[in-house]
C-alpha cells in the first residue's frame, strides 16, 4: 500500500517534471519529452526479462512453483512494456528520423526482445496442461536469457550501424544539463516502482486463478 502511494507521488512528480519543469532539449525540441517515457519503458522491458530469467533459474534450482508464477507474471508485464517501447520509439523515430522504422540497432534489439516474449508465450500456450510445462518454460527462458546479451549488446556493435552511437548514448551527449538527467532518473525510479507493483498484482491474480481452478 505504501509502495503504491509512494509510486503515485513519484509518478505525479515525474509527470510534472517531464511536461512542465524540464526545458526542451537543444536540438530535439519539444519531442524530446518522449525520452522520459521511452527510456524507462525500455528499461522495464529489460528488467522484467531479467527477473523472469532469474525466477526461472530459481525454479530449476529449488523447483518451487512460486518462481514460475513470478517468471510468467514478469514476462507478461515485460511483453506489455516492450510493445509500448516499440510504439513510443517508432513515434519518436518518425519525428526525428523521418520514418517509423529504421532498423537502428537499438530498435532491432528491442524488437528481438519482443520476439522472445512472443515465442515464450507461444510455448506457454502450447504446453499449458502438460505436467512438464514449468520445466520447459523455464529452460527456454534461461536459454533466451543467456542469448540476450548477444542480442542486445554484442550483435549491434559488430556490424556497421545506421548511427554512430546507440540512441541512448547519443541522447546522453545531448542531455548534458543536469536537469534532464535528474528528470530521467526520477522517471526511471517511478517506472521501476510501477513494475514492482504490477508484478505483485499479477502474481496475486495468478495465485487466485489457480485457487479458483482447484475448487
Amino acid at each position: 500500500m505504501i509502495v503504491i502511494l509512494l509510486n503515485g507521488i513519484v509518478m505525479m512528480l515525474s509527470l510534472y517534471l517531464i511536461y512542465i519543469w524540464v526545458p526542451p532539449a537543444a536540438i530535439l525540441g519539444e519531442t524530446s519529452r518522449i525520452v522520459y517515457l521511452h527510456v524507462p519503458l525500455a528499461w522495464v522491458s529489460c528488467l522484467a526479462f531479467a527477473v523472469a530469467g532469474i525466477a526461472s533459474l530459481s525454479f530449476l534450482k529449488k523447483s518451487k512453483i512460486n518462481y514460475i508464477v513470478y517468471a510468467r507474471s514478469s514476462a507478461h508485464i515485460g511483453l506489455f512494456f516492450s510493445i509500448l517501447t516499440v510504439i513510443t520509439g517508432s513515434l519518436w523515430a518518425k519525428v526525428m528520423w523521418g520514418s517509423y522504422w529504421n532498423w537502428d540497432p537499438r530498435e532491432t534489439s528491442i524488437t528481438l526482445l519482443l520476439l522472445l516474449y512472443i515465442a515464450y508465450f507461444s510455448l506457454q500456450q502450447i504446453v499449458s496442461g502438460n505436467p512438464k510445462a514449468p520445466m520447459l518454460e523455464s529452460v527456454y527462458l534461461i536459454i533466451a536469457f543467456v542469448a540476450s546479451p548477444f542480442l542486445i549488446f554484442v550483435a549491434p556493435r559488430l556490424y556497421p550501424t545506421l548511427h554512430p552511437e546507440p540512441v541512448i548514448n547519443a541522447q546522453g551527449q545531448l542531455m548534458l544539463d543536469t536537469e534532464m538527467r535528474l528528470v530521467l532518473a526520477i522517471s526511471l525510479v517511478s517506472f521501476t516502482l510501477l513494475y514492482y507493483i504490477l508484478l505483485g498484482l499479477w502474481v496475486r491474480i495468478y495465485v487466485l486463478k489457480s485457487k479458483l481452478h482447484e475448487e
Partner: peptide, 18 residues
Amino acid sequence: AGARGGLFTILAFPVVLP
C-alpha cells in the same frame, strides 16, 4: 511440447538471430 511444425522455428528464431 509435442508440437511438430511451427513451434520450433518460433522458439529458435529469436535466440539465433544474433
